[in-house]
Nucleic acid binder design. Structure first.
Length: 898
RNA sequence: GGAAGGUUAGCUCAGCUGGGAGAGCGCUCGCUUGACGUGCGAAAGGUCGCAGGUUCGAUUCCUGUACCUUCCACCA
């Protein structure tokens, strides 16, 4: 019975149908098996905003490799998938889509907007899930979650209420980062700094008491309208006489104090700083120290405030409240209604006119921008919800310091600790509609605030029946912080999944979201479940383009993984993404690399095709009688399996992939299959069957070890094997067998291979085509391995016949001689021998051998080396010296015989 | 300002706990060898950024330094 496969591997023909079969058979399901150990991975949920990109491809390939490996090793494996609502990103996309139709959020109203958002989620959420399937992701789709589904939302409310009740969530007016484009607050983490060209305006403020002018500089002159003080350093000798004085704010005419504060740096500029408490984070701190009033001159959508805005806050202004309460809104009069940029221009002009502008300096400086829309951030005072970080961060720092959670590679620990140690209170409220609405209600009658999981019936304070929910929603990372347990049934701690699969085992993600996500999962997990949510964090780099640039939409250099899969197959893409990569390091995408991996797929396909074409047997029982070449191959095979296993355990997928590549291409294909041809086509029927058994055994082991990396091609080949049962993906992991290690035979076989290589080199040097066969005489003291391999040598070294003997031929004239460490080889090829050239060549080899021996000898003459180096090393150097000594002797003889 | 990573063949990158450097692609030469030309065989190509130090021995460990990349903080 012979098996046939097409000559070229066509991934498209098999991938979709194999995935469907796996899924239909329930292969991806995670089962709670009390007899097994659980291994859990939660998928970093892709945003529902877009489609699969290379970042997802790396992330999910690595997770799938781990998942398939652990599943085959016999763990109760759960890989839990899902998607993220990505509040700000999704809302921005939908708003953008609406803008094209000439609609705004306000036109639509919240209810209709949310309908639209859910429709969006359905469409794009499903699309990305489909795309993860094409990659081969073996996750449990029946446990798929969405950060805004019922379970996750319940967890969010539970956490919010708990933290609020403990005083770890509070609401208040604080300095926050405001995106005028998205019209929402964002957290410190969501601000990205970009270097931009700017100016430094030097301005003079008149001092009321002395009439002199104080010079100061600012990058944002438009904020001066809301200045509430000017700060100097109390130590500054230039200004001692001004302590307790005031300046008259130009353009506004308001009298503001000169305060002494450490924030004013004597070394910088004139040592004088204007204080705009409401629009600068540092100034805000100064303002708190000096109890300055909060004056706001910007609206939340990027304009200068005017009478209308004041009217809104009239009561506040009239009541004279200040400090940490609502800011006073000023009427910018002439500038009211201008954008901040228009106001900047106008103010600079006016200052110039009044002779108060000293000079303008061009500078480059980093400006905070919104990480989603890259609009310049305005620091603003705003009433928002915050998470008090310090008490949460402490145990999260300890868990990592104590090694309960380990980062791979280890260096990212520092990155994490740096983040955690410096984190400030987390602003969690967003002025967005798409997201978890904050579970807080305000009594319409008395203003009382009620926080709870459900809407209260009546106001607990006044009994009022009308309560309005806080319109703000939560930062998207608030819900993803709970992902490892909210997806497993928490807060129901009796949930079977939660009890069995939590804490999860390994988190695989990119270094770019350690702060955003990893750190928040860690402190949330510890706080709410009492345990770290995972024990290992495996960090990978990002995929760059072939020039090393980050892939981005603006550059248009993104490579679509789906197109790559379409053209080369998912296996080739997956292998490319791990082959030759190392943990935590970025990698480049290149067309050449993906082609190479496609070629590797084809190589595997054809090697399998060869095995199947020659197969009469149906099982893979290894024969009792193993020849030297079989022992060599099996030893190598076991070595590969050991190494791949060890490297996968260490999350060194790049090295594991190389082990597989090298073994399959070099050892298995180039050597063993070529060797096997003599056995398969020989007259010895028993030997032919033995070889078939060995080939089938080896191929099966190879397919198993390769399966996590290349699930499709391995499964598809496996299904064609006569010994196939069920699915490869559900089989046990490749077996490492101590009883199949034969180091001595392996070494002996290497010597035989050395002879083959040496003959090939010589023939190639002399330009002898493979079709021209010649007799080979091998002279050695150690004849046995060569004798048993005569037919192999004949085939692989293009020989007409092979003779192995102890003594050298009597007549050496017309002989080409070749020397290996273990043997001398002669080929009678009189017509090809050029004595002068031969002499030159042997002379060269002799020099090399002499150099090598001298090097070894020098080491051995060094008494320090002999006494201090480990015995193993000394012995290997001795071996090298002896080997070269033998070689020199043989070469000298060969030279003499010419 | 603080921190991390990188610097190895023409290009892109591996290299575990120190014992005379590897792969893919490219280049050169030779091959219709009965799985594969998406292939086979062979060759060329590296003072492992620079300078010190530790060591019998350093691409590997330590210190310093140059250049590149990234993250964090900050620049009124």
């Amino acid at each position: 019975m012979k098996h046939e496969l097409p000559k070229v591997y066509v991934p498209k023909d098999v991938e979709t149908s194999i995935y469907e079969k796996w899924e239909k058979a329930g292969c991806f399901r995670g089962h709670r098996d009390p007899d097994k150990k659980p291994y859990t991975i939660v998928m970093p949920p892709p945003n529902v905003t877009g489609q699969l990109h290379m970042g997802h491809a790396v992330d999910n390939t690595q997770q799938d490799i781990l998942t398939r490996f652990k599943r085959m090793q016999g763990y109760a494996m759960l890989w839990l998938p899902g998607t993220d609502h990505a509040a700000i990103a999704t809302e921005a996309k939908i708003v953008g889509e609406m803008r094209k139709e000439g609609l705004t959020k306000q036109d639509l109203g919240k209810e209709k907007f949310l309908e639209r958002a859910w429709a969006w989620k359905e469409k794009y959420g499903n699309r990305i899930v489909e795309q993860l399937r094409t990659l081969g992701s073996s996750c449990d789709w029946e446990r798929q979650h969405f950060t805004m589904d019922e379970e996750c939302s319940a967890a969010v409310k539970e956490v919010f209420v708990r933290l609020y009740n403990e005083g770890l969530i509070y609401r208040g007016n604080r300095m926050i980062n405001w995106c005028p484009h998205c019209e929402t607050s964002i957290s410190d983490a969501e601000v990205e700094y970009e270097e931009k060209d700017g100016s430094f305006w030097h301005i003079k403020y008149p001092v009321k008491e002395t009439g002199e002018y104080l010079e100061l500089a600012t990058t944002r002159p438009e904020t001066m309208l809301a200045d509430t003080a000017v700060a100097i350093n109390s130590e500054d000798p230039r200004y001692t006489h001004l302590h307790g004085c005031h300046v008259i704010l130009p353009l506004v005419g308001r009298e503001i104090p000169i305060v002494c504060d450490e924030h004013a740096d004597m070394e910088k500029g004139t040592g004088v700083v204007k204080i705009t408490q409401a629009h600068d984070p540092n100034d805000y701190e100064v303002g708190l120290r000096h109890s300055l009033p909060l004056v706001r001159c910007f609206t939340y959508n990027g304009y200068m405030t005017g009478p209308a805005d004041v009217a809104e806050y009239e009561d506040l202004v009239n009541s004279g409240r200040a400090a940490d309460d609502e800011p006073i809104v000023m009427d910018c009069k002439k500038y009211a209604g201008m954008t901040t940029m228009e106001a900047r221009k106008a103010i600079v002009e006016d200052l110039t006119e009044q002779g108060l502008l000293v000079r303008v300096e061009s500078i480059k400086h980093d400006v905070g921008t919104c990480y989603r829309c890259h609009t310049t951030i305005e620091p603003m005072i705003s009433k928002q919800w915050f998470v008090r970080m310090k008490p949460l961060a402490e145990p999260a720092i300890k868990a990592v310091e104590d090694g309960e959670i380990q980062f791979v590679p280890e260096r990212f620990t520092k990155n994490y600790l740096n983040w955690m140690n410096n984190t400030r209170d987390w602003c969690i409220s967003r002025q967005l509609w798409w997201g978890h609405q904050i579970p807080a209600w305000y009594c319409d009658d008395c203003g009382e605030m009620v926080v709870g999981k459900e809407a209260p019936e009546v106001c607990p304070k006044c009994g009022g029946r009308h309560l309005t929910q806080d319109p703000d929603s939560l930062d998207t990372w608030f819900s993803s912080a709970l992902w490892p347990f909210s997806t497993l049934g928490w807060p129901n701690e009796d949930s079977e999944d939660y009890k069995y699969f939590y804490p999860t085992s390994t988190l695989v993600t990119g270094y770019d979201i350690i702060g955003f996500w990893v750190s928040r999962m860690i402190f949330s997990g510890i706080k709410h479940t009492g345990r770290p949510p995972f024990s290992k964090v495996v960090i990978h780099g990002i995929v760059r383009d072939s020039l090393g640039r980050k892939m981005s939409k603006s550059l248009g250099n993104g490579i679509d993984p789906l197109e790559v899969i379409d053209q080369y197959g998912a296996d080739a893409l997956r292998f490319m993404l791990v082959y030759g990569s190392s943990p935590g390091n970025d990698m480049r995408f290149s067309e050449e690399k993906i082609t190479a991996m496609r070629n590797f797929c084809n190589k595997i396909w054809n090697a399998s095709r060869f095995v199947l074409m020659n197969l009469d047997v149906e099982d893979m029982n290894l024969p009792a009688d193993l020849k030297i070449e079989d022992r060599w191959m099996l030893t190598r095979l076991n070595g590969m399996i050991r190494s791949v296993t060890d490297n996968l355990e260490k999350f060194e997928m790049g090295i594991a992939a190389q082990n597989l590549y090298d073994f399959i291409w070099d050892n298995f294909c180039d050597w063993y299959i070529e060797i096997a041809k003599t056995g398969l086509n020989g007259t010895d029927k028993q030997r032919s069957e033995d070889v078939q058994h060995i080939l089938l055994y080896s191929l099966t082991q190879i397919l198993k070890a390769l399966h996590p990396f290349m699930p499709f091609i391995t499964e598809s080949i496996y299904q064609g094997l006569p010994n196939a049962e069920g699915f490869l993906m559900m089989k046990d992991w490749a077996e490492y067998r101590e009883d199949l290690l034969f180091p001595e035979d392996e070494a002996a076989m290497e010597q035989v291979m050395d002879v083959i290589r040496a003959v090939r080199v010589r023939r190639s040097e002399m330009n002898v085509p493979p079709s021209k066969k010649a007799h080979i005489i091998i002279c050695t003291e150690n004849q046995a391995p060569y004798k048993t391999c005569e037919d192999i040598i004949q085939r692989l070294a293009s020989a007409s016949s092979v003779t192995v003997q102890g003594e050298e031929p009597e007549d050496l004239s017309g002989m080409v001689s070749i020397v290996t460490a273990d043997a001398k080889v002669y080929i009678p090829m009189a017509e090809l021998v050029d004595t002068a050239k031969e002499r030159e060549r042997i002379q060269k080899e002799l020099e090399k051998a002499e150099q090598d021996m001298a090097f070894a000898q020098r080491q051995l003459d060094n008494t320090d080396f002999i006494s201090k180096a480990p015995e193993k090393v000394v012995n290997s150097v001795k071996e090298k010296r002896d080997k070269n000594a033998a070689l020199i002797q043989k070469l000298t003889e060969a030279l003499a015989s010419l």
